[in-house]
Amino acid sequence: MNGPFEFTLRLGDDALIAAQRLAEWTTRAPEMEEDIALANIALDQLGAARLLLTYAGELEGAGRDEDALAFLRDDREFRNCLLVELPNGDFAVTMAKLLFLSAYQLPLYTALAGGADERLVAIGAKARKESAYHLDHASLWVRRLGDGTEESHRRMQAAVDEIWPYTAELFAPDPGAPVDPSTLRPEFERVVTEVLAEATLTRPESGWAPAGGRDGLHTEHLSYLLAEMQVLHRAHPGARW
């Protein structure tokens, strides 16, 4: 049931919505260097999204290109995980989101790069290098904030606690998919546990596990994100840009 189209669409939507959120930081980052770094990561996510959505459109075979998929689907048709659509919050929340996302995307893209689908192999090979950088960047900030000042420690721990429940959805089993996400969990756990320990942060207990993104059941936040992202494209049906 969850064929390659559905799988590719999920990955593409994760990357697209992550890019849209990260790009919101432009001109707002805590340092100029960080403005550039966050834009870089947003550009990587956007680049992966474009490749994945283009390929998803081809797999579907209904003539939808990357823009048709990005701009002309409604909220219930998006397949991204909830984690990426959550608001940016403060810089600690953004870094918690990025840490968990990249610790999931890195083993995912690595597995894709060793898979059977040639297009996904190529996308995975490119994206995993970028994910490795995202993970490095997020890990560095989580350590700095966790082991920085009292205030930054408090904010970073609160951010980890707030975002952690949304990681469960990333690893929901999907045995038929090109990569079964449940197989990525051990590597994710290993990386995240190590970073949190170095950052003098407490790894939250697992409990509440919100989900639904993969079935198009999102948080209230996604609709606003899409309204903004899609407004201009939809105001000029059929126009070329």
């Binding site: 707002r28 980052a29 805590p30 340092e31 960080e34 700095r144 904030l145 205030e151 930054s152 904010r155």
Partner: peptide, 9 residues
């Protein structure tokens, strides 16, 4: 708003 982040770094 970035001051606490720069201080932490």
């Amino acid at each position: 708003e970035g001051a606490w982040v720069r201080e932490a770094a």
